[in-house]
Every structure is written in C-alpha cells, then in structure tokens.
C-alpha cells in the first residue's frame, strides 16, 4: 500500500504539467531525473506533450507495425528487462535473427547517435531501421501508414496531435517522444554520489575505486550514464562480419569500434556486448583483466589489469550498484 502511494506521488511529480507559452494549452511533460543527471534534451521540433507520449507508447507496444502483425518494438525492448530482451541475438518476424544484441533503451534520450555503430542520426530517424528491417518488423513504410490510416483510433489521435492524417513524421515523433521518457529513477550509486556514503557496501566502494583507478574503466565509461557515448574498440574479435563504426564512416581507424554502452542497469541486461557474446559480468571483467584479445584496432586503453580474485569480485559488486530501483516509462513508474 505504502509503495502504491509512493508510486502515485512519483507519477504526479513526473508529469507535473507545465504549459509552454508557444504550444497553447497542450500539456508538456516535465521529466524528473536523478541528481547528477543533465536535464533531458528535448528537440524543439518535437515537444514532449502528454498526448504525444501516450500515442507513442501505444505504437511502441502495437504489433500492427510489423508485416505479419506479430512483432512490436516491445517484443525486443521489454519493459521489465529495462527495455532490452535477455537474448544473445533477438528474433523478429517469422523467428528471423538479426546480427546484434538488443540494447537497453533506458536514458536513450541522452544519446546523440543510435545503434551500436551510430549509423542512425536521431531517435526519430532510428525508427525506420526496425520498421523496415526484414529481420525485425519487415514492413514497408507505405503499408505502415495505410494501417494507421485504416484504424479509427490512430486516425483521430494523429489528427488531434499533429493536425494531419497518420504520417511518417507523426509516427516517428510520437514513438521518439515516448522513448525520451524511458529514464532512470536513481540507483544506490546515485545516493552515494549525492553524499549518502552508506548507500554502497564496502566491497562496492572498493569496486568503485578500482573502476575509477587501477582498472581504468572510467576512461570510457564516464559521466552520469557511465559512458562517453563515443566509439571504441575494446578488443573483441570481429564476429558476423560486423566491422562496427567503420561500416558507417568507411574509415580504417573505425574498424571494430562500437558505441560505448551505458553501464546503468548492467546487472539486469545480460548478455553483453554488441553481439551478446558474454553471458555474465564476471566474463566481461575477465575479458578486460586479460587486456582483451589481440585484435586489429584495439584501443590502447585496453591492456592487462592484473586484478586479483578479490578485486575482480569487488569490481563486479560495484557494477551491481548501478541498477535503478525503478524507472520511468511514459507516464508510469515501473
């Protein structure tokens, strides 16, 4: 019961509507983020209104957007798995497999480029990827629009919100708006950062020191998302012919580079890496401890760490403290 009340207050806080002068009476969402987070960047061309977010949420969960109406965004981005899916490689329509692991979408609003290789330029643009990909939702864009047009509820929502019939612009704006609300509500790590030293257990505090010191994770996993969001090669052998960032830029020096993932909720989003090759966090730490593999283009920051068994356990304990006690999603707290 108490939990329910707390939950309710949080929702009320999260959506405490503030009216912006330029958008009439449309309720704008006022996003609440943990201390230490930057405020959520909302592009001026896609204001975050309550009705848009709700439409986006409905679309995110609706299999109508896949060719055989079996797969929605939420098939692979599952809310209780922090919007990842626990699979090595996800399956889309007709059980087809893609080539990469599904990343968590929590805090995606802060990213500048999308996909493991940064090939997509905005959260709005990103949506064409899964929609059209034959191993994900496999629908052509004109059919997607036709389906929304022949659905009365969607037709009305688009008219109300965008003052036009269902369009690619409205579709991408609303789904992107919903995804911008997928946010951390804070982990024990944040309480510790805010001054509550007891929020981390001794082993976790030792792990944090290693993370920032001897293990050097902080060089790449830094800032409030524990990622600098740039592209790096952390010493994994190329798999499935996936050359990472080089596919986008065509540059030799980008061979085998992938977007550095956020480590928030990392204990809950196994398996790991762009190809899901690692099942556990101790496997990941083992990889870094040996200095990765001897591969072309590996970052000079990836070298043997000589962490002993206790240090490895402490580092892993620390990674567990990055898990949010709950998250925001749309107008809800999960």
């Amino acid at each position: 019961m108490r939990l329910l009340v707390v939950k309710f207050i949080c929702i009320a806080l999260a959506i405490s509507a503030c009216t912006q002068p330029d958008s009439g009476s449309e309720e704008q969402l006022d996003l609440v983020v943990p201390g230490g987070f930057e405020s959520v960047p909302i592009p001026s061309h896609n204001s975050l209104t309550k009705s848009k977010v709700l439409l986006g949420q409905q679309l995110f969960f609706d299999p109508i957007l896949s060719v055989d109406s079996t797969v929605s965004c939420a098939t692979c981005h599952i809310p209780h798995k922090f919007f990842s899916d626990g699979q090595v490689i996800s399956q889309g329509i007709k059980g087809r497999s893609g080539t990469r692991n599904t990343p968590s979408l929590i805090n995606i609003a802060y990213h500048k480029l999308f996909f493991w290789d940064g090939g997509s330029i905005t959260l709005e643009h990103q949506i064409f990827g899964p929609l059209q990909n034959s191993t994900e939702m496999g629908i052509d864009l004109s059919s997607a629009i036709d389906r929304l047009e022949s659905n009365e509820t969607y037709r009305e929502s688009f008219q109300d919100i965008f003052e036009e019939p269902p369009s690619l612009r409205g579709l991408t704006q609303s789904i992107a708006a919903y995804q911008r609300t997928l946010l951390s509500r804070g982990a024990r790590y944040d309480s510790y950062r805010a001054g509550d030293k007891s929020a981390l257990r001794p082993a976790e505090r030792r792990g944090l020191s290693l993370f920032e010191g001897k293990a050097g994770c902080i060089h790449c996993h830094n800032g409030f998302l524990l990622t600098s969001l740039i592209f790096e090669n952390n010493g994994l052998p190329i798999s499935r012919g996936d050359s990472g960032r080089a596919r986008v830029t065509g540059l030799r020096e980008d061979y085998g580079k992938f977007k550095i993932p956020s480590l928030r909720n990392i204990s809950e989003t196994a398996p790991y890496m762009h190809d899901g090759r690692m099942v556990t966090l101790s496997e990941v730490i083992e990889h870094y401890n040996k200095g990765g593999n001897d591969v072309r283009g590996k970052s000079a920051l990836i070298k043997p760490l000589y962490l002993n068994e206790l240090e490895r356990a402490d580092l892993e304990a620390f990674l567990h403290s990055l898990t949010d006690s709950s998250i925001y999603a749309g107008l809800e707290v999960l």
Binding site: F115, D117, G119, S120, I121, H125, F128, G129, Q132, N133, D140, L141, S142, A144, I145, L168, R247, V248
Partner: peptide, 13 residues
C-alpha cells in the same frame, strides 16, 4: 523520407 521507395539510408546519415 519516401514511404514507397527508400531514398535515405536507415543505417547511415
């Protein structure tokens, strides 16, 4: 973005 025939990459700017 054209709905019928793709005129822009989904995997690149």
């Amino acid at each position: 973005k054209q709905a019928d025939v793709n005129n822009h990459w989904n995997w690149n700017a």
